[in-house]
Amino acid sequence: MTRLPILLPLIALLGCAPFPEIGPLPDASGAPPSLLPMDEVMAQAPSGRISASTGEALAARAARLQNRARLMQGPVLDPATRARLAAAIAAGRA
């Protein structure tokens, strides 16, 4: 309830902002894009970006990222720091 007197003037000020000019909307009356078979799309794609080792490189990168995520799931504070902070909080110094 104490935040309400602060938020009300801010919300009121946001209502006074001018609406941004976004310009005219694109014409939607044209024909929709045609769907192409996947073979045609792949034939038009530039070659040389994906090689035989791309899959192996992506699997290795995924394994590294999963390992990093696993390491980040541990505690942030070591036990000594946690105990020191808990003591400071209990003493009223935090």
Results as ranks from 00 to 15, higher is better:
L10D: 13
A43N: 06
P5M: 03
S34F: 09
S51Q: 08
G30D: 14
A63Y: 10
A87F: 03
L8N: 06
E21V: 07
A63N: 12
Q66E: 15
G92T: 07
S29K: 04
G30M: 10
N67D: 14
L65H: 02
L7V: 05
L35T: 05
P37R: 12
L35R: 07
S47W: 08
P9S: 14
I6V: 10
C16F: 05
R3I: 13
A60K: 10
A94F: 15
A94Q: 13
R68P: 02
V76F: 08
P24T: 06
A59K: 06
G23M: 07
T54G: 01
A59E: 11
R64F: 09
L8V: 08
R61I: 04
P24R: 00
A60F: 00
A31C: 01
V41H: 07
M1D: 07
T2C: 08
A91V: 11
S34W: 06
T81S: 13
A60I: 00
A69V: 10
A60E: 14
R93C: 11
A90Q: 13
S29Q: 02
A12T: 11
M1Y: 04
L71G: 10
R61N: 07
A69N: 08
L85C: 06
L58N: 02
A28S: 11
G74V: 01
T2P: 12
R84M: 03
A90Y: 14
R70E: 15
I11W: 10
S51V: 02
L35A: 12
E56R: 09
